[in-house]
Design a protein around this nucleic acid. Structure first.
Lengths: 243, 243
DNA sequence: AAACTTATAGTACTTTTTACTTTAAGAAAA
DNA sequence: TTTTCTTAAAGTAAAAAGTACTATAAGTTT
């Protein structure tokens, strides 16, 4: 017999005891995006344990009992890339009853943007291999990770149209043509060069530096950096970034 | 002593047993939006149990062990409004370690749009009262529900600019001025009447009916309905709706 | 029938977007 | 050192979209 319990919000018709509801596992998965050679990439791991041994998968881990969700995502990112202050964003939570073969595990999906030139991800105990995959040449993935990855991509593509996050994929200093390449890879479309340039400059969010690119076999382009302070200040006044 | 376990993805440095990670409670909260008298409203409940007894809160419930997240949200919506096929959307998951006084409960936030003319929500065992609140006159809320509500609203306001979901707040048949009222309430801004009208008609997503509104003390406006089929067909070709 | 209210159509103007041309600046080859 | 090549960067014109406002139509109420 179940006695009536201090319910959370309400326990509906069934009067199950509170403890019956505390049997969920919780994980976070991080879809890590990078940009190289004019194409968008995703960092995947090859699993070193059951279930889905040897399958490629999105890096993730169980959430610790005393850990916030965002902290968990941050931990995974640092563990895998060795980088701090990576841009990441929660985008969707996946909880299908049968999504995990071992038990009822809910996973919170995050996506992240990293500067691929900054680091070399390394394999470790929990992953046989870590590798960048072109977004158009993905291997089959374990769990429901194909669904998760596609949803991450869809969310990123939406977000990138209204917020200046494309910069997160580039080094501090970049040329406008490099920026254009990022947006073309992200949105899978071409832009007219002069018009893209005009549009970006008119937003007044990139600052020209007194520096040009080097080691190129043609006229070197001017380098810019993103003025995050100006953007943040402007965001308060609800001015939006649209591409 | 903990023995090494079949980990999910990987258990990082600490080798805690699998069962140690299955102590999460899981709930869904539904921010239910409605529209009436030119203003946007939210349906809240007054809690009939601890914690936060008598506080106003967003309706929600624990997820059942064998229940999908979306099903859980749907159940709450039906329970509360008696309506089926309500539009709802997952928007964010809240998991701060101390967000719930009773234990580690993660909550998945949904928002929902309902036609307020269709139903009368009723109080029941788990809620002393159920009431619509104007979005600008909200009471203090229990838990982290103020944060959840504001995030729901922000998400809705973003979504409404790119997808034609405003219609979900209106009856099947509506006038263009009513539609304008919905968007003005949602986005908290005014539109020019002729221009709004022109824009909506140019999208070709509403169909004029051979009917006009009645019981108005002036020239009655033509009624329209939303052509969901046309929108769905067009969405496949990636044509977007922007206001 | 006159006055009033809102629907609905239309018009002129401004801003933004798009497509394309021209010139500039540096690197490499002849 | 001159020519050729490549990309940077500025400019221009036409088209489209957005904005502000005016005028007329079609009902209801007095």
């Amino acid at each position: 017999m179940h006695k009536k319990n201090p319910d959370i919000y309400f326990l509906s018709e069934n009067n199950l005891p509170f403890s019956d509801f505390l049997h969920f596992g919780m994980s976070t998965d991080c879809v890590i995006f990078g940009y190289k050679d004019k194409s968008l990439r995703v960092l995947l791991i090859q699993r070193g344990a059951e279930p889905y041994l040897d399958n490629w998968a999105i890096p993730g881990d169980l959430v610790y009992p005393e850990e916030d969700l965002d902290s968990s995502a941050d931990r995974i990112l640092q563990h895998l890339t060795g980088l701090e202050n990576i841009y990441f964003e929660q985008f969707h939570t996946f909880g299908r009853v049968d999504r995990h073969p071992v038990g009822r595990v809910i996973t919170v999906g995050y996506y992240s943007l990293v500067r691929t030139d900054n680091h070399k991800p390394v394999a470790s105990t929990w992953a046989k291999e870590v590798k960048w995959f072109d977004i158009n040449e993905l291997p089959p993935l374990g769990f429901d990770h194909e669904e998760i990855l596609q949803k991450a991509l869809a969310n990123l593509r939406k977000k990138v149209r209204t917020e200046p996050i494309g910069f997160e994929l580039l080094p501090e200093k970049f040329t406008l043509l490099e920026l254009q390449g990022v947006y073309e890879a992200l949105l899978n479309m071409r832009f007219d060069k002069p018009n893209f340039r005009k549009k970006i400059l008119s937003m007044d969010l990139v600052t020209p530096l007194n520096e040009v690119e080097s080691n190129v076999a043609h006229r070197p382009a001017k380098l810019f950096n993103f003025d995050k302070e100006r953007y943040d200040a402007r965001k308060k006044n609800e001015i939006s970034f649209e591409l």
